[in-house]
Design a protein around this nucleic acid. Structure first.
Length: 231
DNA sequence: ACATTAAGGGGTA
DNA sequence: TACCCCTTAATGT
């Protein structure tokens, strides 16, 4: 396999404080993965033999309910660690990771985890920061699901996606990866029909513009209002 | 205030 | 063509 370029990791939080030689060593132990949209990177319950860093693209983290349908817990954007089961002292992945768009990731065998934690300055802090953020985000989503009306939940979900993956354009901020109505309903515990109706209503109000798998938010502030204030 | 059902349009492999 | 994504109206809880 061709040698990976060191600039892939320089500047990324887990490795930002490292010397070139250390980064070289880390890259030489890494495996490079490319995934097409909808490809499964690993499954919930599967033996966690490697941990990952997303270089490019977007992932969905999914859990299946006993009822059979799936819940989208969160998205992962470039530069983030994922599949870090060893940080939770687990030997299986707690959720399924699916590529939301064409993605590129690096991975390392879990046996290198202790070494990374102790040897590389910033890696441990970044891992725990990531875990904390994820936990907080999931907790927030779940509380939302249990307590708030559908329109507020959908507004929050869209806002979360644009704050994590928003791409600025002339007319607003667009979600940087493909999202279907069904996807949003899987994030918010509602149906694709309700999501479709809400997006249509918001479109008539000039808040968003959406086409197939693509959402552009033209008035983020209005969405914030919808996510906070009772309709 | 929501889900479900039904019926259809349009795009794409 | 079959399949996926999206829309809307009517009806049900």
């Amino acid at each position: 396999m061709a040698k990976l370029d060191e600039t892939l990791l320089t500047g990324l939080p887990p490795f930002s404080k490292l010397e070139q030689s250390a980064i070289r060593g880390i890259l030489d132990k890494a495996k490079l993965h490319r995934h097409n949209e909808r490809a499964v990177i690993f499954n919930e319950g599967q033996a966690a033999d490697r941990f990952f860093l997303l270089l490019d693209g977007y992932l969905r983290v999914i859990r299946s309910t006993p009822g059979g349908d799936q819940i989208i817990l969160l998205h992962i954007s470039p530069g983030q660690l994922f599949g870090i089961a060893p940080a939770l002292h687990r030997d299986t992945y707690p959720a399924t990771a699916v590529a939301a768009a064409e993605s590129v990731a690096l991975s390392w065998p879990v046996r290198l985890w202790p070494e990374f934690m102790s040897r590389y300055d910033g890696f441990a802090t970044e891992s725990y920061r990531t875990l904390g953020q994820r936990l907080g985000q999931i907790q927030e989503t779940l509380t939302e699901m249990a307590t708030q009306a559908v329109e507020r939940r959908v507004a929050s979900a869209v806002l979360r996606m644009i704050s994590q993956s928003g791409r600025k354009t002339e007319s607003g901020i667009e979600i940087a990866f493909p999202v279907t109505r069904q996807n949003i309903s899987d994030m918010t515990g509602t149906t694709l029909h309700t999501v479709s109706r809400l997006l249509s209503a918001w479109e008539r109000a000039g808040i968003v513009a959406s086409t197939r798998k693509h959402i552009l938010v033209m008035k983020p502030h209005e969405l914030v209002m919808l996510s906070e204030i009772q309709g």
